[in-house]
Design a binder for these strands. Structure first.
Lengths: 139, 139
DNA sequence: TGAAATCGGAACGAATCAGTCTGATTTAGG
DNA sequence: CCTAAATCAGACTGATTCGTTCCGATTTCA
C-alpha cells in the first residue's frame, strides 16, 4: 500500500517538467539539479517515463525532454502505471493465479476495489500537482 | 501500488473467520485448511490481526479465534492497516523526511491523495467481501 | 497433574527495489 | 564530411524488505 520511491520521484520529476513545458526542451540533469534528486536516479525515471509515452525525448547535443501530452491530460495514475506497471492490488486481478484460485470468495470483489483506487488516482491531473498552492488557508 | 501477499491473505482469512462468526471459536489451522493457504502463513497473519485488535484469540486447548467486532464494523482499510501499517503512499506523509523535503511542491498534495485512497478502502466493509455474490450476471 | 493445543517471536531464504555505471546513438559545429 | 560533445538507453551490483518456515512459551481442558 506504499508507493515505490521511483514512482514518487517520477511524480516530482514530471511536475518539474511541466513547469518547463512552454520553454521547450529540458535536460534530465537540469531536472535533477532543480528537484534536488540524484542525477542518475532521475535519468532512470526519465527512461521509464519516456518508454511509457509520457515524455518525449530529443537525443543528441542540445536535446532534452518535453511533455508528450499537455499537463492536463496526464493523470497521477498514468505516472504511477508508467513506473510501477499496471495498478493491481492483487495478482489475481492481473490474471495470475493465486494459491486459492479455486473458490476464492474474495476474488470477484477485487476488481471493484481496484477500479475504485485507480479512479481516485486518475482524477488527479498533473496540473493540480504542479501548481504551488497558496497554503495560506488555515489547515 | 500493489498490496503485499500478507495483506491479501489477511483479507481472505478474515472472510473465512466472518463465516464462522456465529459458530464461536475457530482455530487458525482450520482457517488454513478451508482457505487453502499454507498453515504457517495463516498463523502469522492471525498474529498480526490479533495484535491490531481485529481478532480475539482464546489460548489453550479448545481455543481459537473470533472476530473482535461485528463484520459490518470492519473495513478493508482496517485489515490492510493491520498488516501493512498505516496507509501512506509516500514517506513524507508519515512524517519521515524525504530527499527533497525542502520546497517540495508535491508534498502538500499527498495527504489529499492519501485520504482519497484510504476512504475508498474504508467504505468496503468485511460483510461485502465475505458474501458470495450470485455471479449469474453476464460479466 | 498431564497433555494437548494455542499464540508469539525469531531465523532463514528469496525477490524486488534503489542506485550506479558504462555504452550506443544522435545532433551541432568546424 | 568529419570531429566532438551531449544526450538517452540498457545492464549490473548492492541493499532492503517481504515471504515463509520453524521452534519455544503460555494457557486451558480432561
Amino acid at each position: 500500500m506504499r508507493l515505490s520511491n521511483l514512482a514518487d520521484y517520477a511524480v516530482v520529476t514530471m511536475c518539474q517538467a511541466a513547469r518547463h513545458c512552454g520553454g521547450g526542451k529540458v535536460s534530465a540533469a537540469e531536472l535533477a539539479s532543480e528537484s534536488g534528486l540524484p542525477a542518475p536516479t532521475v535519468q532512470k525515471v526519465v527512461s521509464k517515463l519516456t518508454s511509457a509515452g509520457l515524455l518525449r525525448s530529443s537525443r543528441g547535443a542540445g536535446g532534452g525532454l518535453q511533455l508528450a501530452r499537455p499537463a492536463a491530460a496526464i493523470s497521477l495514475a498514468d505516472i504511477v502505471e508508467a513506473v510501477e506497471g499496471p495498478i493491481a492490488l492483487t495478482a489475481c486481478v492481473e490474471g495470475e493465479d493465486c494459491a486459492v484460485h479455486e473458490k476464492c470468495s474474495v476474488k470477484p470483489h477485487w476488481p471493484i476495489v481496484n477500479s475504485a483506487l485507480r479512479g481516485a488516482l486518475a482524477e488527479i491531473p498533473l496540473t493540480r500537482l504542479a501548481q504551488i498552492p497558496q497554503v495560506k488557508e488555515v489547515a
